[in-house]
Amino acid sequence: MSDAPVARPLTNAVRPEVLADKSDGGARPAHGARGTRNMKSKTREAIAAYVFLIPWLLGLAGFTLGPMIYSLYLSFTSYDLLSDPRWVGFRNYVQMFTADPRYLKSVSVTLIYVVVSVPLLLIVSMLLALLLNKSMKFLTGYRALFYVPSLLGASVAIAALWRLVFGADGILNKALAVFGIQHGSWVGNPDDALTTIITLTLWAFGSTMIIFLAGLKQIPKELSEAAAMDGAGTLRRFFSVTLPLMTPLIFFNALMGTIHAFQSFTGAYVVSGGTGGPADSTLFYTLYLYQRGFAQLDMGYASAMAWLLLAVLAAFSAFFFWTARFWVHYGDES
């Protein structure tokens, strides 16, 4: 994964590396240098790497892997938190698909959410990041204000605010009424409740935007300027310079966005008061997992749900990394 081979920029109009060569005179070390380095230097590099990795390796062994492995074990048990786990083999895994309609409901809710919210979130954040990357007055203030919704986090005030906007007598319906559109409650209607959660996600687009914005800041100005001098228009510059250089972060945001969306919990938890209602319409996967584990004291079952999700996400990530070789362009390759 970390050594995905060369990715070509999406268009052949302006190749960043050519521009880079133009701008710094083109003195670049030969690529062969790395390959011909001797054994000793390789060993030294490996030792250095492991020295750098010490804190993380300790954390992995001490804090992360133990609880993970233990939860894997729990997924094969019946465990009510209060008494000892009892080995049941694959029973939890089988039950999910044979005897639990709510599980299947939570899968479908989550899939719809992922498919709709992730692309929308990426597009909205990218557009806003481009807009806020211009130099203009009050820029800092604008960025901060656009970011405010993301700062609220899981604040208890969110539930009240969401009812205020999407309730039967909420702001949205008052606004629609101006245009003569009548609509019932959004949060209170099983057909619309998921839409309000997706809106909540999009509302808090700030974090994704900030990552894009930081990436845009990293793009050498010379590249864009050189392209402009070559006569490339704004759109053309975006697709031939900005976009290829942004691919590592687009990749990051898409992958992390998808993982987070599959694990999405807080929005639905806060807005539905932890129930996943109305009528299970916002019963997200991890929300149901939480209900099973902590309220119904079925931690074995919850662990099985979690590990199944891990397996699915691992397969998805592996596939996504494989596609990266076709479209992600890293600066450490050429």
Binding site: A159, A168, G184, V187, G188
Partner: peptide, 9 residues
């Protein structure tokens, strides 16, 4: 209504 009930804190 059912909808208003679902909205109730």
């Amino acid at each position: 209504s059912a909808q208003k009930s679902a909205e109730e804190p």
